[in-house]
């Protein structure tokens, strides 16, 4: 092993022979970036010119990576590389699930509506899905019937903010129509409701709170329904867990009012 005090000659960056000087001074030049670590040195008794980096000296420089990929991963242990990879994949799944959540929350609410009404004794008798179009999520229409008196509750839900970015700004909102219907035994009364349905048809874009009437002549039902805007996140949390009790109370208040409208106009249920 050569001593650091050993006087040596060396070849500089321009190819000129320099020295002699103690080896330590030459190593300092390498550490200062003035001389390449492959610069050749020679001293009395040496077999020939030898590159500095083959003398087993501490040149104060990191070992040159063996390959480009080794250079890419330099400074990181295998464990660190694994940890970062797992974190990146995990974050990707988080973002994926965020989008999935944004497009599912309305259907979670819909499941909550069905559960709340079925728990009260209604049966679901109609379920329709309309496809998404022009940047809006699809809409759903539900119809329930109470087996005892055949009265009906209709609920339609359209998610207005399926885009995660929009939902982050204003929250998840839905246009909801809730209706109550009952069978009316007299043709004239259903006919009257039909006239009102025609009038309701002129309300192209109902504002919240607008009550409209609808009638189905074939099955003899008349319906009163109201348009509402609802904040879905009041009922559905970030784990898609639904507050069925709050949903039930809110539905109850609307159904109660619509029932009052129907009964005021068409009398008690048949």
């Amino acid at each position: 092993m050569i001593e650091m005090s050993q006087p040596v000659h060396w070849v500089d960056a321009a190819g000129q022979q320099q020295g002699p000087q103690p080896l330590e001074a030459v190593v300092q030049q390498v550490r200062a970036g003035q001389l390449p670590q492959t610069a050749n040195v020679w001293w009395e008794g040496a077999p020939g010119w030898t590159p500095l980096n083959q003398l087993g000296l501490d040149l104060g420089l990191p070992a040159a990576p063996a390959s480009a990929s080794a250079a890419l991963m330099s400074g990181m242990t295998d464990q660190e590389l694994d940890d970062v990879f797992i974190d990146l994949v995990g974050r990707s799944w988080d973002m994926y699930k965020e989008t999935e959540y944004a497009t599912s929350i309305d259907e979670a609410m819909l499941g909550g509506v069905i559960t709340a009404l079925v728990d009260c004794g209604f049966v679901l008798i109609d379920l329709e899905t309309a496809n998404a179009w022009a940047g809006t999520a699809g809409s759903h229409r539900l119809r329930f019937e109470e087996p005892a008196d055949h009265s009906r509750v209709n609920v339609s839900v359209q998610h207005l903010t399926p885009d995660p970015a929009v939902a982050k700004m204003i929250g998840h909102r839905a246009a909801v129509v809730v209706g109550y219907g009952q069978r009316v035994p007299q043709f004239s009364k259903v006919g009257n409701a039909l006239k009102q349905e025609v009038q309701s048809g002129f309300i192209v874009s109902p504002e919240p709170g607008t009550v409209t009437f609808d009638a189905d002549l074939s099955s003899g039902y008349v319906y009163a329904q109201i348009d509402l805007l609802m904040e879905i996140e009041r009922y559905v949390d970030e784990h898609l867990d639904v507050d069925h009790e709050m949903l039930r109370k809110h539905l109850a208040s609307v159904v109660y009012t619509m029932k009052t409208f129907i009964q005021a106009r068409f009398g008690e249920v048949s």
Binding site: S104, A108, G111, I114, H140, F144
Partner: peptide, 27 residues
Amino acid sequence: SKDEIVCGQLLAGLSHLGWRPYRIVAD
């Protein structure tokens, strides 16, 4: 409506087991 009635009961019954409805599609 028999199939819809079944769907309604399944949704409610499975919700009470902790399953969370998140996709409802009716063709």
